[in-house]
């Protein structure tokens, strides 16, 4: 019995684990956050003083802007903590209808907000920003994409959001405006997963929001979609009627709608609703 094969196997296995560990370290937590129940909401009855945890369910595309807003809100209101759950608006709406203990819901489309209002869990959502689509390609642009038409070419690997997620719906509208049939290789769960597949170079292009390209930095390159074929979506925000921390939830919603809040969103490329 020779001993060499084992050594090779062992080396391969060590390598494999090393890679797995690196992957683990670098992928990290994609923003799914735990939901903590507020314990201090009812003790202070003064209208100005808000405290405790605000749980915000927000569309994945709002991740960077809302994270900044959350930090600003926390320093403006000492004693508060903003906990985010970022994900596909459709999935978030389903969890809220299913009883998830959220205080605020910010959706990337009116349709998913309607799911929540139809279940009598919120009233009068306020539109706070709008967003349009852009093509994201890996920094090196291996497939030489320079227009929407290129996405329909054979052999070009495109990732899109799946159809029920707002970014998927809006992308489909762009293709219908441009009279194109685009066959994606993958329909991702939310816009950030599309962006990841692009920045890793696994696909040649993805259709995401302009704000995603802006916040992704130089990992991806944006290719503008001409305004005559581009499509937009409006984001509504609402304090949920069953909010465990209603006072702080209302304060956070107001902060998003305030001039300061809007400035952060505009800086990331969001447009007025």
């Amino acid at each position: 019995m020779t001993r060499m094969p084992y050594r090779h196997l062992a080396a391969a296995a060590v390598l494999a684990t090393a890679l797995a560990t690196t992957a683990c370290g670098s992928s990290g937590d994609s923003g799914a956050s735990s939901t903590t129940t507020s314990t201090t909401s009812s003790t202070t009855s003064s209208a100005a003083a808000v405290s405790g945890t605000v749980t915000v369910f927000a569309a994945a595309s709002l991740k960077e802007a809302f994270t900044t807003l959350g930090t600003q809100f926390e320093s403006a209101h000492p004693g508060t903590k903003v906990v985010f759950n970022f994900g596909p608006s459709s999935g978030l709406a389903t969890s809220i209808v299913g009883g998830a203990p959220a205080d605020v819901f910010a959706s990337a489309s009116q349709k998913n907000m309607d799911q929540v209002t139809a279940a009598s869990l919120a009233t009068n959502p306020t539109p706070f920003v709008s967003n349009v689509m852009e093509i994201a390609v890996p920094a090196a642009n291996p497939a030489h994409i320079d227009s929407v038409d290129d996405l329909a070419k054979a052999g070009v690997k495109v990732a899109l959001c799946q159809a029920q997620v707002p970014c998927g719906t809006v992308a489909a509208k762009v293709f219908s405006n441009a009279k194109l049939t685009v066959k994606p290789v993958s329909q991702e769960v939310d816009v950030k997963s599309v962006l990841t597949k692009v920045s890793l170079g696994e696909v040649d292009a993805g259709v995401v929001y302009v704000t995603d390209v802006r916040t992704a930095g130089d990992k991806v390159k944006g290719i503008e979609i001409p305004s005559d074929v581009n499509a937009s979506t409006t984001y509504p925000i609402v304090t949920l009627t069953k909010a465990p921390n209603a006072a702080a939830a209302a304060a956070f919603t107001a902060y998003v709608l305030s001039a300061d809040g809007q400035a952060v969103l505009t800086a990331d490329g969001f447009a007025k609703p």
Binding site: A16, A20, T22
Partner: peptide, 27 residues
């Protein structure tokens, strides 16, 4: 070496599958 290998081979049993997915993507 073989004890170590045995441990590593069974690692995917306890590894969260999504981590496996990320690792596969990187390799």
């Amino acid at each position: 070496a073989s004890a170590l290998l045995r441990g590593l081979v069974t690692l995917p049993l306890v590894l969260p599958p999504v981590v496996g997915g990320v690792a596969l993507l990187l390799v």
